[in-house]
């Protein structure tokens, strides 16, 4: 090793976190990975071949990706304007919006999911409102449908979209928008050519957060859509908890991991391409 290359001692401050994660997360992950490629004590790719050649597995993978993508999109479309408003607001308004976003995080996921069960029932608030407004001809049940799942999950995860976008937008010089305006750019042009490209890093972080959480959510689908609808996460849970099939559980968990990492890495690479040097 080159002796001139010294380690910055500040980096050592990350050591406690690294050790902690290595013990409680890294080791079990390695055990899991090991199990997924071991059959009867011998290394084998048979579990993956078997899993991926089953058409039902592909339904489950598609369910996982579709729901996670929908939840991410809903969060992005709701979250981006909120983040923009938050970044522009000042004083009391900003504090109020921040509280409104962060405070619900202190309510457990289970409690929220139960609340959505009430809201999304056939005689729930949404159904009554829609029929009352004449938009629906008769009461409908959103509970135990994919739409209901997406609505409920987006509610839980939207702060994780808003906060990273907000923290990036907050640092964008407001003069940039003014400069664009005086150069003749309409509000819409300013948004798409200035604010949006400059907030891409925040969008990527938000998308990575929400997608990985939505792809791996377990409690929310259980309460809002039930057993009929399987995702990789619920299948992993069932394999370990009910079916006692640790082989299958390890395999689905690894597939989920690969999928999520691929999306997170892919979206970061995409934003680099779109955002150029920033």
């Amino acid at each position: 090793m080159n002796s001139a290359r010294r380690i910055d001692p500040v980096i050592l401050l990350a050591l406690p976190a690294v050790i902690y994660l290595a013990v409680v997360y890294g080791v079990p992950l390695l055990v899991l990975l090991g199990r997924s490629v071991m059959v009867g004590g011998l290394p084998s790719l048979a579990p993956f071949v078997g899993f991926l050649s089953d058409p039902f597995s592909w339904t489950v993978i598609w369910n996982t990706v579709r729901i996670a993508a929908l939840v991410t999109l809903v969060c992005l479309f709701i979250g981006y304007p909120t983040a923009l408003a938050l970044a522009r607001a000042g004083g009391v308004a900003q504090a109020l919006i921040l509280v409104a976003i962060i405070l619900p995080l202190s309510v457990g996921v289970v409690v929220k999911a139960f609340a959505w069960q009430i809201v999304l029932r056939r005689d729930g608030v949404v159904s009554q409102l829609m029929t009352g407004l004449g938009l629906w001809s008769e009461p409908q049940r959103l509970l135990f449908t994919e739409a209901g799942l997406v609505i409920g999950a987006a509610n839980v995860f939207v702060p994780f979209m808003i906060l990273p976008i907000y923290s990036v937008l907050k640092l964008v010089d407001p003069r940039l928008g003014e400069a664009a305006a005086t150069l003749g750019a309409s509000p819409l042009y300013r948004f798409f050519k200035v604010a949006l490209p400059l907030s891409l890093p925040g969008i990527v972080t938000g998308v990575a957060f929400v997608f990985s959480m939505a792809a791996s959510m377990y409690v929310i689908p259980n309460l809002l859509i039930g057993d009929r609808f399987q995702t990789l996460a619920t299948m992993t849970g069932r394999s370990f908890l009910f079916m006692r099939n640790e082989q299958l559980g390890s395999t689905t968990a690894v597939v989920l991991l690969v999928l999520t990492v691929a999306v997170v890495v892919g979206s970061a690479a995409l934003s680099k391409r779109l955002g150029g040097a920033s």
Partner: peptide, 8 residues
């Protein structure tokens, strides 16, 4: 501050 667009 010139307000040049940093992404361009």
């Amino acid at each position: 501050s010139y307000a040049l667009f940093p992404h361009l």
